[in-house]
Write a protein that binds this DNA or RNA. Sequence first.
DNA 1: TGAAATGTTGGGGCG
DNA 2: ACGCCCCAACATTTC
Length: 435
Amino acid sequence: MKPAVHIFWFRRDLRLHDNAGLFHALDSGIPVLPLFIFDTRILDELENKSDARVSFIYQALEDMQEILVKNGTSLDVRTGTPVSVFTQLTEDYDIRAVSCNRDYEPYAIQRDEQVAALLHQSGIPFHQYKDQVIFEKDEVLKDDGKPYTVFTPYSRKWKATLHNESYLPFPSEKKSGHYFRQPAKPLPALGSFGFSPSPITFPGKTWKPELIRAYKEQRDIPSIPGTSRLSVHLRFGTVSIRELARNAGSLNETFLNELIWREFYQMILWHFPHVVSRAFKPEYDNIRWRNNEKEFDAWCNGKTGYPIVDAGMRELKTTGFMHNRVRMIVASFLTKHLLIDWRWGEAWFAAQLLDFDLASNNGGWQWAAGSGCDAAPYFRVFNPYLQTQKFDPDLKYIRRWVPELEELTYPAPVVVHEEARKRCLEAYAAALKNK
DNA sequence: TGAAATGTTGGGGCG
DNA sequence: ACGCCCCAACATTTC
């Protein structure tokens, strides 16, 4: 006799508290089996076998497991494609329902459709809930029912849509008696599916009110810890967006706006999935990128001879993180000074960033390249020296990552700023003239 | 959530 | 005293 269970499938919501889908599953009256799948379709794409994100997920699973075991249950962690894992699970259990939280990326949508179809064959209901955003795909639309493509009016409508219940928690942590009771199952070792631990240390998920209050004034100075560092926790759901928006969003409008940017880009990705491979504005696909591989390599490895660019790229490679101000500078430099396709930069960030999120990364890159919705105008070319003067005047951030700055070993600039700027304006103008 | 080029203004040096 | 020039300093426009 197979045990009857309601499976809750964790994906980018790796927490036991204030978890919308988990709350509803625990409320269903059927014992909940918590499941996580190391998806080989994703893992096989990762070139770095000590990828920090895999370690981060693993640690989050260990944290959840510790609590679950105390509650007399255990995570069921499996490796494989989701369809094959669920096929196996239907043999092990009498599955009464499967629940999870919605994921809006193209691959996730397709994956969930396949799983839903499989479960449907066996008559198993598949429930999905909103959890990773305050407002999802079609909750903040223009009055004519179409999606916004400009941030400011979107954010205005987002704030107008907000009501007393928008931030209300789903206290899944208070229903810990509703899990399927079973002895602890040890998590499969990282090595069992070909990975090893990452040396990167992960940012904490607590924050101080003073930091949020000072966010507007401090967030642009890369030498000080003026940003929250919560992005990775929002990416994997180790922090609840409702809890964060409720507590931190009210302290600082600029910080709240950043949370809204996140939802803006998720909304854009949902309605305009072509942005994954093409420019939001089609005429920008006419740009004749130079795509010089040596220059790209110099950019990736922080050897462009532009200290602020090199500092950022080295911070990224070493820590899996880059300060947001510097992300804008290095992205502007790659696309405009070097005239290298924004997709190359996007892919490098995707491989390196611990907090990588398809929607935000793609949105940010298309913003920098000028090809995105509500993007920086193409003629806005960041001057790396002026950006340094404004945001790292005493070279504190630069010296931390480029210690050889004043030595002969530091490379000469790969391009001369004035010339590169002129070349960029010509290339963009040529691509856009007949739009 | 730029920067550079160009235009305007006004104070001060100087004949 | 006055006009002329120079050039910050600020404003506008252009990319």
